[in-house]
Design a protein around this nucleic acid. Sequence first.
DNA 1: TATAGACGTTCCAGTAGCTGGAATATCAAG
DNA 2: CTTGATATTCCAGCTACTGGAACGTCTATA
Lengths: 144, 144
Amino acid sequence: MTKLKQIGPVARELGINPKTIRYYEEIGLIPPAQRTESGYRVYGQADIDRIAFILRARELDFSLDDIGEILALREGGEAPCLYVTDLVQKQLAVIDAKIAALNQLREELEDVQRQAVTISLDVIVDKECVCHLIENRAIRAEIA
Amino acid sequence: MTKLKQIGPVARELGINPKTIRYYEEIGLIPPAQRTESGYRVYGQADIDRIAFILRARELDFSLDDIGEILALREGGEAPCLYVTDLVQKQLAVIDAKIAALNQLREELEDVQRQAVTISLDVIVDKECVCHLIENRAIRAEIA
DNA sequence: TATAGACGTTCCAGTAGCTGGAATATCAAG
DNA sequence: CTTGATATTCCAGCTACTGGAACGTCTATA
């Protein structure tokens, strides 16, 4: 018999909000927790491990849906590893796309910053557009 | 007098869903559109420009809140450029953090993939954990 | 002129993954 | 016996839209 913990200590141990655990239960990602006589949720090590697994998968940016499927497959007796490698492949593609987009975004913002430094005062005072820094970028983009 | 356009053509021109324009109006990001007798929204070039500005700022990953403030400052007669440079600075920091996190994530997922290839069959068949690929990563992380 | 279909309108609800708050119950310590 | 920390449920909101239902409007053609 392992020692049972209430939701607060478990959440603190895992570095999350207790509400997150209740939420996972609510959407069926974890089974309904065991309760004390007075209705408090209590968790054993296996429950904590399951939540920890979810959190690690979340760190890898898997969606709760995907995590749920992995868990369900496991419950069905199948080792989910092959399924997971497929998910991982897809995740990698998504991440690469995100990184590329962010890098481009970064360049564009640096562009904006550079322009802010070199912009001449009379342009700043001119009131014909909402914001030169952003509008000019669009104009330059059209030219290019 | 410029030609007025209905919401559909405007949305197509800008490459967005008409609902997005109604949404921007609903949250007050753009003023209520002029209407035809029958209640159809119509837009002039200035309106379209304003929406286009919002879309460009969104491409730079500004929140609608930030964009609203920029627009409001502009309405107040102040050039928002200085305000924008401040926002851009903050955006850059956020983006850098995101890129760093994604790169780390990428490495971890590649790690998982590598492990998937070299993992031995007896480990796959063992059913003691939910998913070796993800769990093992956590174990290795603890060791490191 | 009737009608089809392509557009427009409003309103409600849902997405992901939580998080905050209100109203209420439980529990341990002083 | 009260105080404070914790727990419970339920409702609502966050971002930035998007989908769908139910309905109105406009144009073109049979």
